[in-house]
Structure formats: structure tokens, C-alpha cells
Design a protein around this nucleic acid. Structure first.
Length: 316
DNA sequence: GCCCAGGAGTCCG
DNA sequence: CGGACTCATGGG
């Protein structure tokens, strides 16, 4: 591999591995090979597989194809939110009396969506589902219907477009009926349920249809938080928590504060006198944490996951 | 076998 | 509005 093809990015305080494996619904973790994380990115509208490795406070980025260095640099800086000042955020957490969550999550950053549509489907697939399972579903969807790119004996799959996913059958029965008489010898099921998405299959297909025919997801970029929230809540399978995940991980609306069972338990543990109810919590976070709300949620959840606090709070 | 997973839709008072 | 019930399915 051509050594001058490697781009070195100052990453500051950053933990690539923890960020990759923190279960953010933007996308599954990238393919890990010997400490390197590999993924297919779109750089200025062109597909380009990339390998990323961390050495101390430097991120080494190795593109598989010729690509404009500055465009790729910006892309990586965006995806790992490298411009966000973590030290500033840590002193903010300190001021809020939440410094307990820093140590177990030091270096954790937003893992932003390389494809907002993939983030929307990931977030829908994640509802009432384990990280292990929804990430595998997304990988299955990519392998079955995503565009494939082969580079030096490696195959990368992008996520399918809304148009492609809208045309996929929901379950085996529907697929068989569509196929009718001409079943090939090596017939294998190619429907959404076969990806393990369960009852979320109709949500995924209908949301895909709406995004193919009625709404351009890119409109969200130009909207403010509340406007974008209302738009996303129109999509089937998207409720308050999933909408906030999409806004935070998919479009970097950092005022978003996704409230799930764990965050609710953690917040009620931290503020025992409040006894938050559904809905209150989001408004509280929004007014108290402002544009830091998303990062506060990220750190609270990750801390609880890693420190054993979640086990302690279970059932309470 | 049983319980749970980073919830949402629906119905019912 | 608030609460209860259901939804599919793989892993511990």
C-alpha cells in the first residue's frame, strides 16, 4: 500500500474503538481487521472504501481509491465529530454535577451517519430490540439489496436506497405469491422478515416508500430541531425516542435527547426528587442542557452501560 | 422454557 | 392525556 496515500488527522481526545462499539443507531460498527476499521463511504458523491486506524491522538485514514484528500478529511471529521471540543464538554458536565460519567466514557464522540436513510432504518429496527440483533439486521439488508463494490478482493456493501427497499417483500408468503410459478432451483428467501426485523417489517417498507415518493430526507438538514422532529414523527415506526436518535445520530441536531428506558431510569436516579414522567424529561434536558443535550445523553447511557449502574437500576 | 431487548401503535377510560 | 396490552424474534 502506498504510504503517501495515508492521511493523518489530529483527533484530540478520542477513542475510536469505544465510539465504534457504543451502539449508536447511526450505523453498525465498521468492519474491524487488525485494529483497523473499514467501511464504504461516499465522498463527493463517489463510492470510496476507507480504512481508519487510531495512533494516540492521531487518526490514520487510508482510502482504497484515489480521492480528493480534503474531501475525505472533511468526511471523516464529520462522521466522528472531531471538531467537537470534548474538554469544553467535560467542564460543562462538571458544572452540571454529572462528572461521574466522564471517566468510563473518555474519548467517546458522536458516531454520525454516513447515510441518513440507513440511520432512519437502523433507528426503527432498534426499537425494543438488542444492539446485536438490529446491527445484524442492517448488515443483512445491505448484503441482500445494497450496491456492492469490490476492491482488492474485499467486498463492501452500501445501504440500499429508499426506492429499492420500498420494493422489497415484507415476508415469505408475500414473496412466494409474487414469485408464483417461476421459482428457481436455488430459491432463497429475500424478504425483510428474513433479516430478523420481525413486526417492524411493514414500518421499514412504508417509511421507505414515503421517503422514495413523498419526502426528501435531505430537507431535514435545513430545518431546526422542532420542525424536523414533527416531520420525522410522521413516519410509521418513528416515535419520540427513534425521532430523537435520527436527529442526533443522523443529522447532528445536538439538542436532541433520546429518552429510552435506561436514560429514564438514570435521570430519575440522578434527580430523585423530580420523578420525571414521559415527555417531561425531553423538555427538561432541552432547557437545561441546550445544544449539549445529545452528548449528555450519550455519556449518561454509555456510563451506565459500562459501569454496571444499569444492572443496579434494573426494575427500579 | 422464560425473560428481555436503547419502543411504537392502538385502544380504552 | 395516562395506562395497559400487543407486536416478532434471537440471545442469555
Amino acid at each position: 500500500m502506498n504510504i503517501e496515500n495515508v492521511i493523518e488527522l489530529p483527533a484530540g481526545e478520542f477513542d475510536l474503538e469505544m465510539t465504534q462499539k457504543s451502539g449508536q443507531t447511526s450505523q453498525p460498527p465498521w468492519h474491524e481487521v487488525g485494529g483497523e476499521f473499514r467501511e464504504l463511504l461516499m465522498v463527493r458523491g463517489r463510492p470510496c472504501p476507507v480504512a481508519v486506524r487510531q495512533r494516540g491522538r492521531v487518526l490514520e485514514v487510508r482510502p482504497y481509491l484515489r480521492v480528493n484528500r480534503n474531501d475525505l478529511k472533511k468526511r471523516i471529521e464529520y462522521i466522528f465529530d472531531l471538531k467537537f471540543d470534548l474538554e469544553d464538554f467535560y467542564s460543562f458536565l462538571d458544572d452540571m454535577g454529572l462528572s461521574e460519567s466522564i471517566e468510563s466514557s473518555r474519548g467517546l464522540r458522536l458516531f454520525l451517519a454516513k447515510d441518513p436513510f440507513e440511520c432512519i432504518i437502523s433507528s426503527i429496527a432498534s426499537q425494543n430490540c438488542s444492539v446485536l440483533r438490529w446491527t445484524r439486521s442492517i448488515m443483512d439488508i445491505r448484503r441482500m439489496w445494497g450496491p456492492a463494490f469490490r476492491v482488492s478482493s474485499e467486498t463492501f456493501h452500501g445501504f440500499p436506497s429508499p426506492e429499492v427497499l420500498a420494493a422489497v417483500e415484507e415476508d415469505s408468503l408475500e414473496e412466494l405469491q409474487r414469485a408464483e410459478d417461476d421459482l428457481p432451483e436455488d430459491f432463497a428467501f429475500n424478504n425483510l422478515r428474513a433479516c430478523g426485523v420481525g413486526y417492524r417489517a411493514p414500518y421499514i417498507r412504508e417509511t421507505s416508500r414515503i421517503l422514495a415518493e413523498e419526502i426528501d430526507v435531505n430537507e431535514v438538514w435545513g430545518m431546526d430541531y422542532h420542525e424536523a422532529l414533527e416531520l420525522l414523527l410522521e413516519l410509521p415506526g418513528v416515535g419520540p425516542k427513534v425521532a430523537d436518535c435520527i436527529l442526533l445520530y443522523g443529522f447532528r441536531k445536538t439538542e436532541a435527547f433520546p429518552v429510552d428506558v435506561w436514560v429514564r431510569r438514570i435521570m430519575n436516579y440522578i434527580y430523585p426528587e423530580r420523578n420525571f414522567r414521559d415527555g417531561e424529561l425531553r423538555e427538561f434536558a432541552w432547557s437545561r442542557f441546550g445544544e449539549m443535550a445529545g452528548y449528555v445523553q450519550l455519556y449518561l447511557f454509555n456510563h451506565a452501560r459500562r459501569s454496571g449502574l444499569l444492572e443496579k437500576l434494573k426494575g427500579g
